[in-house]
Design a protein around this nucleic acid. Sequence first.
DNA 1: ACTTTTACTTGAGAAACTCATGTAATGTCT
DNA 2: AGACATTACATGAGTTTCTCAAGTAAAAGT
Lengths: 150, 150
Amino acid sequence: MPSSDIAARTLDQVVQLAASITGVMRDGLEELDLTEPLANLLWILDPEAPPLPLRKLALRLHCDPSNVSQLSVQLEDKGLGQRRPHPEDGRVRTLVLTERGIEVRTQLLDLVAARSPLAVLGDAEQERLQAMLTKALAAPRRLPRLPSAD
Amino acid sequence: MPSSDIAARTLDQVVQLAASITGVMRDGLEELDLTEPLANLLWILDPEAPPLPLRKLALRLHCDPSNVSQLSVQLEDKGLGQRRPHPEDGRVRTLVLTERGIEVRTQLLDLVAARSPLAVLGDAEQERLQAMLTKALAAPRRLPRLPSAD
DNA sequence: ACTTTTACTTGAGAAACTCATGTAATGTCT
DNA sequence: AGACATTACATGAGTTTCTCAAGTAAAAGT
């Protein structure tokens, strides 16, 4: 049982899990009055972290910056977010959640957490899982044959 | 440290990992001459498993069956797949990979496996990871407040 | 000061997806 | 067996989402 088979199987399971999670999210979008791209944006907008420039958000979402611009407008139109000028750099805008935005984001996260397959794992298991994921995510991302994007 | 925080953090890490994996995949699409939706379809087309009806593929991809129809046409145009009538049910069509399709799929999987963050985990760790993921994915999916779709 | 670079916005266009409709095969009911 | 309903897929139109190109404004480099 070669090592690459193990890797392939692990990868496949993670992808399956991810698909399941996005499925759960999609099923909850209507009751939150969100679209999928808006929900994805909301997801990475941690109210407790320092606000991020739109450019950083684009990197995180693996999409074009212009796309984030358009999504930001939608978030503002819904009263969930607000673009703020960066205090030090006049070119930069950061995206901040409004009170209502924080509320909806919490609902979104709670909903997905409650219905995701991960919910069946106990606290101890989740912590072991976290340990492994942390290790993987912290890795210095050495991409073979590619300039370091991301 | 309430249990829901642990769950939220685990979930966030899985989502981050998934984003990273799709990012890796996207970066490799050009060199494989694939689009993202085609790659996703290719991914779930295991040549060793019995061929699946288009409808099942749509369920797996969380999308409309008509979408799978269109993607199947693209796969055929590229010479990577072929739709076959179901031997017993005249309405059903299954999608099978061609020789070249299997080849490209292998390249895709290998590429993602090599560059994914999971690559930094050792075999033993991956097996422990698999154990947990298997448990989660096998769970009978009790969706709160929703008829059992999926 | 002048040029280059960076961050965002805007608008046009392409890609991907959904929905409605149509067709054919299967299942069901009497 | 015949009539009706259901299921699986195909097709075309329309919507949504995304990318790309061009433009503006601020900052950095020379």
